[in-house]
Each structure stands twice: as structure tokens, then as C-alpha cells.
Simulated assay, not measured.
Amino acid sequence: MKIRSSRLLVGILAAALSCAAFAADKAAPKAAPVAKNGVLATVNGQAIPKAVYDVFLEDQVARGAPNNAEVQKAIREELVRREVMAQEARKLGLDKKPGFQTRVDMLRQTALVGSYIDTFVKAHPVTDADIKKEYQKLVAKNAKREYKVRHILVDKEESAKAIIAKLKGGAKFADLAKESKDTGSAANGGDLGWNSTDAYVKPFSEAMVKLEKGKYTTTPVKSEYGYHVIELDDVRDATPPPFDQVKPQLKQRMQQQAIEKHIAELMKKSKVQ
């Protein structure tokens, strides 16, 4: 089970709320709804309990909506719209149709599952310390080096060997790079900038990491693109993204993992036939 699937109804309600908020903003001045005797509004004599409004508002605020007069009015408008449509549906006998109660039961189950997950998350919060620890673990695990390299790409091995011979004779790499068929880097002396090994095809990266700074490959490096002569300018440790930048994604992932682990434990305890 995934949170996304258990929140389908919430997504529908949020979309409806968004439409209602837009309509409310255009139709009337912003004002918070007023409830009397526990009733938010009546539609054709049918009361909409204030408790329904409270739950709807609480749910939206928990998901990032502001608790202001505009949102409150939009929720009231949406609940009234829903009651009007529900009354029309009952007039048509849609609540008596086969399968309707099953759908109601499924929605009730979805709401229960969502409430259970919310309760679990509140009882097992992911702390800043937990996130920081996970961040440090990922940084250590995925630590990479970046390489600043130049290359000259030609079609034939003989051409690459001739370039290497010229380099040995004192020619400058940047000057010879003008012969490269990689026109993008040729204009910059063959410079490919800073990249990790993942940016290059395997034969290229394997030859690159073996070089010392300031050295070039003394034999042509063959790849699917042709033959390369590679020069290593510099090496540095890759800088990971700042903690604050990835913290929200890490927190969400860690919460999801905790939920999935908990559900797996519940499944193991359950008797399924």
C-alpha cells in the first residue's frame, strides 16, 4: 500500500476546494462562515453540521492550506455544493443502485487507512537528528570525485597516435584540440569542464581516472564515438547538495520507509487465507 493511493479522495477534495476558492474569491468579499447551534448551513432544509466543516478545514490546513477567511469561505461553499448534488443524486435513487454501498464502504476504509497513517506518523516522527544522520550516511556512501579533463576526438586510431606524438614533441593540447571532431569542446581547447565518471562512457572514464594531474593518455582510448586523447587538468571531491536543500525530500522518504516497514510488520502478524 502506498500513501498516494490511500489519499485519492483527499486529492479530489483538494481539487474541488481549489475551484471553490477561485469562485468564492470572484463572487463575494472574503468572510469567515458563521455557524449557529452547531449547523454550518441548511440546504433545502437539510443541515450541514459544523463538525463536517471543522474536519474538512483541519484536513486542508494539515496539508498546507492557510487557515484564513478565504479558505474557510471556500470550504463552506464546497460543502454546500456537495450537499446540493447529493440531494439531487438521492432524488434519482442513485444511493439505492447496486454497488453504491460498496463504494461507500471503500471510501470509509480509505478514510480509516488515511487516519491510521496520520496517527502513526505523529506517533513516530522523523526528527531532524534522524534526517541529518541519513544525510551524512548518503553523502559518505555516494561520495564521488570530479575530474576536469580535456579531450581530442578523432575517427582513426592513426590520427590519435599522431596527436600523441605531437604532444610528446612539445605541442600544446589546446592547440591540437582544434582537430577534434567534438566541435563543442574543440572551441575551448578540448575542455569538458568538471564532471564525475558517470558523465562519460566506460572506456573514457576508466582511462581518465588512471591519469595523474597534468598528464595525458599515451595510447588512444577507443569508444563508440571514435578515438580519444585525454588530458587530466585537475581532480576534486564532489560537493553534495546542501542539507537544507534535500531535507524535505529525505524526510518524506524516511517517513514512507517507516510506514512501509510498519505495514509489512502488520501483514506478518495477520492471518490471510
Rank of each mutant, 00 (worst) to 15 (best):
A171W: 10
A171T: 08
A171I: 11
K172D: 02
F173P: 00
D175E: 12
L176W: 00
A177G: 00
A177V: 00
K178A: 12
K178M: 10
K178N: 05
S180Q: 06
K181L: 12
T183N: 15
T183D: 13
T183G: 10
G184S: 07
G184E: 11
S185W: 08
S185A: 14
S185Y: 13
A187T: 13
A187V: 15
A187I: 13
G190F: 09
G190V: 02
G190E: 01
D191F: 13
G193K: 10
W194N: 06
N195C: 01
N195T: 06
N195A: 08
S196V: 03
S196W: 02
A199Q: 07
A199T: 02
A199F: 05
K202S: 12
K202E: 09
P203N: 03
F204K: 04
F204N: 00
F204C: 06
S205D: 03
E206W: 03
E206R: 10
E206T: 15
A207F: 15
M208D: 08
V209F: 12
V209S: 13
L211Q: 08
E212A: 15
E212H: 14
E212C: 11
E212T: 14
K213R: 14
K213T: 09
K213S: 02
K213Y: 01
G214K: 01
G214C: 04
G214P: 01
K215L: 00
K215W: 07
T218H: 04
T219I: 14
T219L: 12
V221W: 03
V221T: 13
K222T: 09
K222M: 14
E224A: 15
E224P: 02
Y225N: 15
G226Q: 06
G226Y: 12
Y227L: 02
Y227C: 03
Y227F: 12
H228D: 08
V229K: 05
V229A: 08
V229L: 02
I230H: 12
I230M: 15
D233V: 13
V235F: 06
V235I: 10
R236I: 01
R236N: 01
R236W: 06
A238C: 06
T239A: 08
T239S: 06
T239Q: 07
T239W: 03
T239K: 08
P240R: 09
P241Y: 07
P241K: 05
P242V: 05
P242F: 09
F243W: 14
F243G: 07
F243Y: 15
F243N: 04
D244F: 10
Q245I: 09
Q245G: 00
V246H: 02
V246Y: 02
V246I: 08
K247H: 09
P248G: 15
L250C: 05
L250Y: 11
K251E: 11
R253E: 15
R253T: 14
M254V: 03
M254R: 00
M254N: 00
Q255P: 05
Q256Y: 01
Q257S: 06
Q257R: 03
I259Y: 00
E260M: 07
E260A: 05
E260S: 07
K261Q: 07
H262Y: 07
H262Q: 15
H262E: 15
I263C: 04
I263A: 06
A264G: 06
E265Q: 11
L266Y: 12
M267G: 14
K268M: 13
